[in-house]
Design a protein around this nucleic acid. Structure first.
Lengths: 150, 150
DNA sequence: ATATATCCTATTATTCTGATAGGGTATATG
DNA sequence: CATATACCCTATCAGAATAATAGGATATAT
């Protein structure tokens, strides 16, 4: 399984956003420079995240982006689905879903849906807060500041 | 999650193959016509499946393809991996795997790997025999010949 | 010898992805 | 109210990946 650049950039952007105090904004330029992401490309991505209800924004001088919700309330599955499309087909009715499924065996379709659902479950159980926490812990460990878990 | 045409065609081809008595061959032309798959494209696919050890072949007059193993011994994961590449990264050592993973957050990489492993597990638990059986049962049910499960 | 059927390499067409371009719109500030 | 700032929006483009086609080479049963 592979994430598109857009999704990768989106995760980095949101983890960046999650490190700002709640309610304060950050600017595209700052994010783009610090993460070596093409600025104009990043604009499209943040706009999509905003339209998806993950980010909010303020325009004009002193404006910028900020998370629309707390990091613990943003599921990784949500982020992936903005750019990769629906992970698991919730609608099983005949005729629902992608229309070109017809020339595929129902058994194979079912198998793919089951695999998709399994992956979707993993993403759905992870939140932006989890990702940030995990990254922080990894950084601490690399600095020779080992953490012990019971 | 989406399978490429090659993988879809491969599944259909192998389910077709599984319906022949063990040891008997089928021809590309027959398979292509009955499943509306471009014949030349199908040749490439069967060749890949042969090189992957899933199919065997006999050349010349009266030749054709046949399964290299019994359908119950061919995992769906194997079929997917021939065309989509490795499903789950088995090697976790530093430097292993795709090299462009560097500009992605370790936490995100780990999450993706976990989701991949979940999907891979589903495919690995399914065999060609399972798919054929499921399709047969579905066909019977559609014919107004309902089957009852305890 | 010949017809059959797989084997192999190259090329083409189409679609998707990643990125760039250029301006439009809202807003804080002096 | 002019201006600088920073998001908003649409279009376009280059390259990669996918889907398919093309043309023969090779092996083999008869």
């Amino acid at each position: 399984m592979r994430l598109s650049k857009k999704t990768e950039y989106a995760f980095r952007a949101l983890m960046f956003a999650a490190r700002f105090p709640e309610g304060t904004t950050f600017q595209i330029r700052d994010l783009a420079e610090k993460n070596r992401i093409p600025k104009k490309f990043l604009e499209l991505i943040l706009l999509e995240l905003k339209n998806a209800g993950v980010l909010s924004s303020r325009r004009g001088v002193g404006g910028g982006y900020l998370l629309a919700r707390r990091p613990g309330a943003i599921r990784s599955s949500e982020i992936v689905e903005v750019f990769e499309g629906p992970l698991a087909p919730k609608d099983r009715r005949k005729g629902a879903g992608n229309p070109e499924k017809e020339d595929s065996s129902p058994a194979v379709s079912r198998l793919v849906e089951e695999a998709s659902a399994a992956a979707a479950g993993i993403f759905a159980r992870s939140t932006l807060a989890d990702l940030v926490r995990e990254e922080d812990e990894a950084t601490l460990r690399r600095r020779g500041n080992p953490m012990y878990f019971i």
